[in-house]
């Protein structure tokens, strides 16, 4: 199975845009029938069956994100938003085209990556911190702030499996917001916790916006797009069909179903 590869480069240039995406393509090879396993693969080869189906997810995206922009990415389920985010984050390889990242990028594809139910809250904080690039010493310094923000101090020595799912997300969010970086990638992480905690999260996003951080937010909430974003793009069937003012893009998004 020969695959072509595009490029993803990281640079550090204060004049260049934060992110530049040129002619980005991506497709996945989805196994048809039971193509997992050695036996089936050998049979398929003998029968001349490829054993997978090519699913084109991104079909030539072009855009740039300026420093300080708060960009919303919207689109239906399966339109390619998360794939795009994962390529920006360096998790997936671009198949064709190039992606240039300018500055330190912090991706939040999911909150609480690496959280382990068998470990205590304390151990998970250090583990998750390491995944965000923080050393033990750095975590020691922010440790109390994390628990205070999460409002879960009394549970720190409990195993994570004894936390409610809301509590886990709150803890994860409290760690995540410690991450430094020039560019933040956020995939649907606004909607966590109860109303009081939501308020805290919104304050955090307001703050990001005020401090002119470059943020890319994938979301289905048009309220958040209108409220936080300075620009938005609408992706449908792997292509950008609208790029511009958050209000306009949000309207276009809602029209997809009418």
């Amino acid at each position: 199975m020969k695959r072509t590869l595009g490029t993803r480069t990281e640079i550090n240039d204060s004049d260049a845009p934060a992110i530049a995406v040129k002619n980005l393509h991506k497709s996945f090879h989805l196994p048809t029938e039971q193509a997992f396993g050695l036996k089936q693969t050998i049979f398929n080869r003998l029968r001349g069956i490829k054993g997978y189906k090519e699913q084109k997810v991104l079909k030539g995206l072009n855009f740039e994100i300026k420093r300080g922009e708060f960009l919303g990415i919207v689109g239906r389920n399966g339109s390619g938003k998360s794939t795009l985010l994962k390529i920006l984050a360096g998790i997936y390889y671009p198949e064709k085209g190039n992606v240039t990242i300018n500055g330190a990028l912090v991706p939040f594809i999911e909150l609480g990556v690496g959280f382990n139910p068998e470990l205590t809250g304390r151990e998970n904080v250090y583990l998750n911190g390491a995944l965000l690039g923080f050393s033990n010493a750095e975590m020691d310094k922010m440790y109390d702030d994390i628990w205070e923000f999460a409002e879960l101090k009394e549970f720190e020595d409990q195993k994570l499996k004894n936390y409610s799912s809301g509590m886990q997300v709150r803890l994860a969010f409290s760690i995540a917001i410690r991450a430094r970086g020039d560019i933040l990638l956020l995939d649907e992480v606004l909607a966590v916790g109860d109303a009081a905690f939501q308020k805290k999260c919104e304050d955090y996003f307001e703050n990001l916006k005020k401090n002119n951080r470059t943020v890319i937010l994938v979301t289905h909430s048009m309220d958040n797009v209108r409220r936080f974003c300075t620009r938005a793009i609408l992706i449908d069937d792997g292509k950008i069909i609208k790029d511009g003012k958050p209000d306009k893009v949000a309207d276009a998004y809602l029209k997809l179903w009418s």
Binding site: E118, L119, E123, Y126, L127, A130, L131, G133, F134, N136
Partner: peptide, 13 residues
């Protein structure tokens, strides 16, 4: 940092 923390976790678990 990552290598150290993952190894520690593996060992603990």
């Amino acid at each position: 940092i990552l290598l150290k923390e993952l190894t520690k976790t593996d060992f603990k678990l």
